[in-house]
């Protein structure tokens, strides 16, 4: 595998008295698909939010492609998310009043691409994820599987280097879940994007190249540990 793209060291984050992260360290390498597993409430979503620069950790450092994310302003981090990251969530991520096509085009438009061009590229991605027929429908009128594929298209449309997927199949049945995972991993491998895949389902995690486990706010990364031991 290639070089480390996103490195988090000793992240700590508390919400009130509960510590969501208690010294978590993890490394995401370019182009790899990394499953983040763990029981619910273990802090895996918080870890994802921190890695993506949505939530600043209370302490610890995150480095992305040589830049220290934790030292950047909110505006810069937002800009970075627009240009380099993509996101897929379990539910509620598609803007209900925008058509599927407009939803996919949205990240491009936020990044300043003109509407026509953004929608052309969005349409191509919808085609790649085999949901071109729902382009002009509202998210409320398409099936969960179709909606999630639209979300995958949206996460990839800007050509991100990292896609963060938080339980992307959580709301789907097995078959649709499989389909979304196949399409997501294929598309990610085609474009060379790394995927940080938060899931509690082993079958979903099995699509990843490797997995780390978060328990009680600490990341158990056997690879990192064995590397440490070797070193």
């Amino acid at each position: 595998m290639s070089t480390a793209l996103l490195v988090a060291t000793d992240l700590r984050k508390s919400y009130g008295p509960t510590a969501a992260l208690a010294g978590a360290s993890v490394t995401v390498r370019a182009g790899e698909i990394l499953a983040v597993m763990g029981p619910s409430g273990s802090g895996k979503s918080t870890l994802l939010h921190c890695l993506a620069g949505i939530v600043p950790p209370d302490s610890g450092t995150i480095t992305y492609a040589g830049r220290e994310l934790t030292a950047m302003s909110d505006v810069d981090r937002s800009a970075l998310r627009r240009s380099d990251f993509g996101f897929i969530f379990q539910f509620g991520q598609l803007i209900p009043e925008l058509t599927c096509l407009e939803n996919v085009a949205l990240p491009l438009r936020l990044a300043g691409v003109r509407r026509r061009e953004a929608e052309r590229r969005a349409r191509a991605w919808l085609a790649q994820l085999e949901v071109e027929d729902v382009a002009n429908k509202l998210p409320g009128t398409v099936s969960g599987g179709q909606g999630q594929r639209v979300a995958v298209a949206r996460s990839l449309v800007t050509g991100p280097r990292v896609v963060f997927a938080d339980e992307p199949t959580g709301a789907l049945d097995s078959l649709n879940g499989e389909k979304v995972m196949v399409l997501l991993t294929q598309a990610a491998r085609d474009t060379g994007a790394a995927v940080v895949l938060v899931t509690h389902e082993p079958r979903v995690a099995a699509y990843a190249d490797r997995e780390v486990v978060v328990r009680d706010g600490v990341v158990h990364d056997r690879l990192a540990q064995s590397l440490e031991r070797a070193a």
């Binding site: 993506a52 993509g86 996101f87 969530f89 509620g92």
Partner: peptide, 16 residues
């Protein structure tokens, strides 16, 4: 809030 959260996630500006 979910929709807002996802908008924030992919870097939507406050201004927008």
């Amino acid at each position: 809030r979910r929709v807002l959260a996802s908008l924030v996630a992919f870097g939507t500006r406050r201004r927008t």
